[in-house]
Design a protein around this nucleic acid. Structure first.
Lengths: 158, 158
DNA sequence: TCTTGACTTCGAGTATACTCTAACATCTAT
DNA sequence: ATAGATGTTAGAGTATACTCGAAGTCAAGA
């Protein structure tokens, strides 16, 4: 006899609310979950692995409809190993892109933190404009170049 | 006499659609933009810097309402340098967290890519279950531990 | 002058992912 | 046996960020 987990059990253990789990089911992500005669969802020990995979794909930024595709392949078993590999590989690329984008933003935000500290010391957000050109910090000149490129409509790597 | 850019010019240069620019204006992000007598928005060269800042904050994951707060401080000039510094510093923290989260997901997705390749070679998604325990790769054992923790409802660092 | 294209506002529509409510069924412990 | 907790469904509501359409205004060139 197998031990079953109700939707409430699963919610408490995984931190995914029962509402959300039902929503995922409705969206076709939880087709692997058994039901009792009366319709209650019966989660097994084994169901936690695909459930975990769903959370990983979600936290990686994969939309529900694509997770549904993945779960549909999962249900088909050994015949779809390659397709599922391809999907994970694509998600890997997507993650690298997302991380790259955020790291680019981090560089600019780091600059802004530095710049606002300098501006705060001098009590003037445009202090550098009153400085002789050779005294202006290189970081400011480079940032202004970026803004100029933005204004010129240079092709960007989005 | 100053050169002005219309909303169409700005859209073409920045890649932000005129629709979206008007939406941002309606949401209070573009209060710094002048208007002609007849109501047409007149963007100046200087307006591209706050516009660029808006895109950076957006791409960093900041919601519109918080960008509005920032732009409200921007309009108040030198008196709000410190508050703006604090906001950028918080955004820096947020970016580090987001990058950390994605890097955690990348580790798991990397593992999945490896695992699916192994499974594909053997034509069996559960090949390791038929192996003697000491022949099971350590990576698989570690991943299964993570899934077990997930099932046990261990406190997670979300 | 008239046409054309770009501008304006307002408000409705779309997409995504929940989040909640209502009405009802079922399970469990006293 | 009955109360109360927990389960079920369908469908409505929320939040966010656009995205589009309609109806009208305005400025410049043929």
């Amino acid at each position: 006899m197998e031990k079953y987990y109700t939707i409430g059990d699963v919610a408490a253990r995984t931190g995914i609310s029962a509402h959300t789990l039902r929503y995922y089911d409705k969206e076709g992500l939880l087709s692997f979950v058994k039901r009792s005669e009366s319709g209650t969802r019966l989660f097994t020990k084994e169901d936690f692995e695909p459930l975990y995979t769903i959370t990983v794909l979600k936290r990686s930024g994969m939309p529900i409809r694509k997770i549904r595709e993945f779960m549909s392949l999962y249900l088909q078993g050994n015949d779809t190993i390659h397709e599922r590999y391809v999907m994970f590989n694509e998600q890997r690329e997507s993650l690298l892109e997302q991380i790259g984008e955020l790291e680019d933003m981090l560089k600019i935000v780091d600059y802004k933190c530095w710049y606002f500290q300098e501006a705060e010391k001098r009590g003037d957000i445009n202090y550098y404009k009153k400085l002789p050109e050779q005294e202006v910090d290189q970081r400011i000149i480079e940032f202004n170049k970026i803004v100029d490129d933005f204004r010129e409509g240079v092709a960007k790597e989005d």
